[in-house]
C-alpha cells in the first residue's frame, strides 16, 4: 500500500526526517510512535502531500504521490489539531466535505454514535475541544477508504467516546483496511495496534509486533518497552 524510500525533510536547519524507509504492505493497524518532535506528523503529512520532502519517494497504492492529488481519494485523514473554519455550522461542514469528495458516506450513524445531534446547528468556533474532535472523527470515518491515517485521535475524548473510537477502528480493520495511527497513549496503542513503527531522530528505529518489541527490550509492558528503546539509543 505505502512504500517510502529514503525520505529526507528539514525545515530550515532543523532536520526532521533523515532517510526514512518504510513499507506497509499488509492490512492492519500500524502505530507510528516516537518522542515529541521525532517527525511523526511530518511523516504523515508527507504521505498526504501536505509536506513536500526534499529527497526520497513515496508511493501509495502503486503510484508515486509527487505532483499527484487523485490518490488522496483513497485516504481518510484525521488531523492532529482540529482546525475548522469557525463561521461554519457542523452540518454545513459535513455537507461541504461530502460535496467535495462526492462519495457515499454514512455520517448519520456516526453522528448518533457520538451524540452530536444537539451540536449540528452550532458554529464550529463555539464547540469545545472534545466536541470538535468528535466532529473530526465523523468527517474521517464517514467515507469508505482503504487507507486511514489518524494523527493523535484520542486527544480530548471522554471515556465513552474513546470506547466508540476503538470500536470504529476495530470495525475498519475487520473490513481489511490499513490504518496508520500516532499516539502517546500506550494503553490505547497496546489495545489496537498490530505493528509498532518507532521513529527516533528522523529514522525508523524499530518495526515489528508488540511481543517482538517486549522481547527485544526485555520489558513486560509496552510503556516501559517504548521508554527502554528511547533510552537504549541514548546510551549507545
Amino acid at each position: 500500500m505505502i512504500h517510502i524510500k529514503e525520505l529526507h525533510k528539514s525545515f530550515g536547519k532543523n532536520k526532521v526526517l533523515s532517510g526514512i524507509n518504510l513499507d506497509i504492505e499488509t492490512n492492519g493497524i500500524f502505530a507510528v510512535l516516537g518522542p515529541n518532535g521525532s517527525g511523526k506528523t511530518t511523516l504523515i503529512k508527507s504521505i498526504l502531500g501536505m509536506v513536500l520532502p526534499q529527497k526520497g519517494t513515496i508511493t501509495v497504492n502503486g503510484g508515486p504521490i509527487k505532483k499527484n492529488w487523485k490518490y488522496r481519494e483513497q485516504i481518510d485523514y484525521l488531523p492532529q489539531i482540529a482546525n475548522f473554519p469557525g463561521n461554519l455550522k457542523v452540518r454545513e461542514l459535513i455537507r461541504m466535505i461530502q460535496d467535495l469528495r462526492r462519495k457515499p458516506s454514512e455520517e448519520q450513524r456516526l453522528i448518533t454514535l457520538f451524540q452530536l445531534e444537539p451540536f449540528m446547528d452550532k458554529r464550529l468556533s463555539t464547540l469545545s475541544g472534545g466536541t470538535k474532535q468528535k466532529v473530526n472523527i465523523v468527517l474521517t470515518f464517514m467515507f469508505d477508504c482503504p487507507l486511514i491515517v489518524l494523527d493523535e485521535p484520542t486527544t480530548g475524548l471522554d471515556p465513552a467516546s474513546l470506547i466508540h473510537l476503538k470500536g470504529l477502528i476495530r470495525e475498519e480493520k475487520e473490513k481489511g483496511k490499513t490504518i496508520l495511527i500516532t499516539s502517546h497513549i500506550m494503553q490505547f496503542v497496546a489495545e489496537v495496534a498490530n505493528t509498532i513503527v518507532y521513529i527516533l531522530e528522523g529514522k525508523i528505529y524499530f518495526k515489528g509486533s508488540i511481543p517482538e518489541l517486549k522481547e527485544q527490550t526485555r520489558q513486560n509492558d509496552l510503556e516501559h518497552a517504548i521508554a527502554a528503546i528511547a533510552n537504549a539509543k541514548n546510551h549507545a
Binding site: L48, G49, M50, W69, K70, Y71, R72, E73, I75, Y77, P79, N83, F84, P85, G86, I97, L100, R101
Partner: peptide, 16 residues
C-alpha cells in the same frame, strides 16, 4: 482567516 479551511482542504483530493 481561512487558514483552517485551507488546511482542511489540503488533505482532500483537490489540486493545490
Amino acid at each position: 482567516n481561512s487558514k483552517e479551511f485551507t488546511e482542511l482542504l489540503l488533505a482532500q483530493p483537490i489540486r493545490r
